[in-house]
């Protein structure tokens, strides 16, 4: 049986992990390679690096980060944040990334999904979708540019289209739940799970052990991503996995 994946996410700004990461007693707490190695020790199944740098130097710096991490961490690495071209994708893959996550660029230039999938395989192209619920209509709308811009796309509609274009995996963040620590948006993942046949990663809302159990038991998702609960060591990956195991969820 395929194990459910637990995926910590690291925000990287100019080559350094930005969000406070306080589980390490290191002199240099912001070093991506050291933090990645610690997550590997804890039993993470995959790592997502999100480049939040807003300068022209960004891609070169991120490539160096991936190069460094992949020398000492031997698990799948996904890189996202501001990637807009095949050349950028190629450089990151060559540096050691396994998957590339496209978000805003996938909306503004959907042909990038297809071009990337054709050149590097569907398994390599993750489409990240930020979703917010419209309170009046109850519809799930897609947002871009770090959640700042609303689009006219509904989540299910865009998810299906992204998969048809070549996405091999979807990383779905519920903006409603993000940072709330009240659990994952299970209804959203149920709808999406029924609509597409590629793996779905749930993101946004993890606050306690039961949240992870609930999302895996109540929706057909392949993995769960979280940032702050792991960074601030409110939960360790080992604790999450132990609790999933007790609940009968298959984990590594």
């Amino acid at each position: 049986m395929l194990a459910k994946r637990i995926i910590p996410c690291l925000d990287v700004d100019q080559g350094r992990v930005k969000k406070g990461v306080n589980f390490l007693n290191l002199t240099d707490v912001g070093d991506p390679a050291e933090i990645a190695a610690e997550y590997q020790r804890q039993g993470a199944d995959e790592l997502v690096f999100l480049d939040i740098t807003a300068t022209n130097q960004r891609r070169k710096t991120m490539t160096e980060v991936v190069e460094q991490v992949s020398r000492q961490v031997f698990m799948p690495l996904t890189v996202g944040g501001g990637i807009t071209s095949i050349a950028e994708i190629q450089a990151l893959l060559k540096a050691g990334a396994d998957k590339i996550s496209l978000n805003s660029a996938a909306i503004s230039n959907p042909s990038l999904i297809t071009a990337g999938a054709k050149k590097f395989g569907n398994q390599c192209i993750v489409v990240a979708i930020d979703v917010k619920t419209d309170q009046a209509s109850g519809k799930h709308f897609v947002y871009t540019h770090g959640g700042r811009q609303k689009t006219s796309f509904e989540a299910v509609e865009w998810a299906k289209r992204a998969v048809n274009l070549g996405a091999g995996e979807l990383l779905i963040t519920s903006m409603d739940q993000d940072g709330m620590k009240t659990g994952f948006a299970i209804d959203l993942y149920r709808k999406l799970g029924a609509a597409v046949d590629v793996p779905i990663i749930a993101s946004g809302g993890a606050g306690n052990l039961q949240d992870f159990v609930d999302v895996f038991q109540q929706a057909d998702v392949a993995g769960a991503l979280a940032a702050s609960v792991f960074h601030y060591r409110e939960l360790t990956i080992a604790q999450v996995k132990e609790s999933l195991k007790q609940a009968g969820v298959v984990i590594r």
Partner: peptide, 26 residues
């Protein structure tokens, strides 16, 4: 779901000594 993407468990079908450590490993 296809592709199969993730950690799956190895079942040892025949003992080859050198690779027996893979039994039940993901």
């Amino acid at each position: 779901r296809v592709p199969q993407m993730g950690w799956n468990q190895n079942q040892l079908l025949q003992s080859k000594k050198d690779f027996d450590f893979l039994a039940n490993e993901y």
